[in-house]
């Protein structure tokens, strides 16, 4: 059996420094075990305070776990003897895009900010230039390369921040609520880039969000609630457990909710119900099935 890309075993974390005070209640993460394979697109879903951002920070070792083990690509990164070099390697492998685009830009000029990561890797200037141009083209920001980052819109800034991570050529990118502060257009752009990175480059995507509609785009949804994993499965599987979701303060997307209600009342709904487009297709299919093709459009 091959080793999964990210393997988390019995992960526990508390923000309290003092070990004695670390009671069960103070734990933000309580016993999390999960495996993530290379190339997966996973949404990590949870409401505020569920520990999802903490989880992301533990994966890149910005925070050190209180207990448990994290293995990335065969290397146990929670090993206290982990060398600096291996830590840099981990952060090279797993890139991270944060919520506030303003707080992750290091330099004034767009292309210099994108170059920041590769510069830290100590690459050759010509190689950095090639990567920066490529990364900016990937997020369609190439015409802004010499602009000042402070004059861009939120969505554009976030695209630059993503380019900064792409330029490091990571194997996995964690989006820590990266769409939360954006307007609808910026949000759409960022989500589309996430899909593209997953589909075209095979990059493992971990999307941390509290938005069900965004989570529905992933191949797999992990639900965190109160520091534990409360659900793990495909969007279809997760959405079919609506009552359970409601109990932990979450709900399925509107369209999926409609389909579930219809199903409950005995309408023959088949097929995917995760995105609005899927729902339309499933609805059409079942209407044709029932009415024999009398529906237009």
């Amino acid at each position: 059996m091959s080793v999964p890309f990210i393997q988390v075993e019995n992960l526990r974390f508390s923000y309290l420094e003092d070990d004695r005070k670390k009671s069960e209640e103070s734990l933000v993460l309580k016993d999390i075990s999960v495996q993530i394979e290379k190339g997966e697109y996973v949404a990590i879903l949870g409401h505020n305070g569920s520990g999802k951002s903490t989880f992301a920070r533990l994966l890149t070792l910005i925070l050190e776990p209180t207990g448990g083990k994290i293995t990335v690509d065969g290397i146990e990164v929670t090993d206290p003897q982990l060398s600096d070099e291996e830590l840099q390697k981990l952060r090279h492998k797993i890139g991270m895009v944060f919520q506030n685009p303003d707080n992750q830009m290091v330099t004034t000029i767009v292309e210099e900010d994108v170059a920041f990561g590769p510069e830290n890797l100590g690459l050759d200037p010509a190689e950095i230039r090639r990567r920066v141009d490529e990364a900016l083209a990937a997020v369609r920001m190439e015409e802004f390369s010499r602009r000042e980052a402070s004059r861009l819109s939120g969505g554009q800034k976030q695209r630059v921040a993503i380019a900064g991570v792409i330029a490091m050529m990571p194997e996995c990118i964690i989006f820590d609520e990266s769409t939360a502060m954006l307007d609808p257009q910026g949000r759409k752009d960022v989500l589309r880039i996430m899909d593209m990175l997953h589909r075209e480059r095979g990059i493992t995507i971990l999307h941390i969000t509290h938005d069900m509609n965004e989570a529905a785009r992933a191949d797999r949804i992990l639900i965190l609630s109160d520091g534990r994993i409360a659900g793990d499965g495909t969007p279809e599987e997760i959405f079919s457990r609506r009552e359970e979701l409601n109990r932990i303060g979450l709900d399925v997307p509107q369209c999926a909710g409609l389909m579930l209600e219809l199903k409950k009342r005995g309408y023959p709904i088949r097929g995917k119900i995760t995105t609005p487009e899927d729902c339309v297709d499933s609805l059409k299919a079942s209407l044709y099935l029932n009415g024999g093709g009398t529906v237009h459009g």
Binding site: I62, F98, V132
Partner: peptide, 19 residues
């Protein structure tokens, strides 16, 4: 945090794009 995530570890071994 964002800088650390992008492998910033001080000036040692850093190169520059625009020389």
């Amino acid at each position: 945090t964002a800088m650390e995530c992008r492998c910033y570890h001080g000036g040692a071994g850093r190169t520059r794009m625009n020389k």
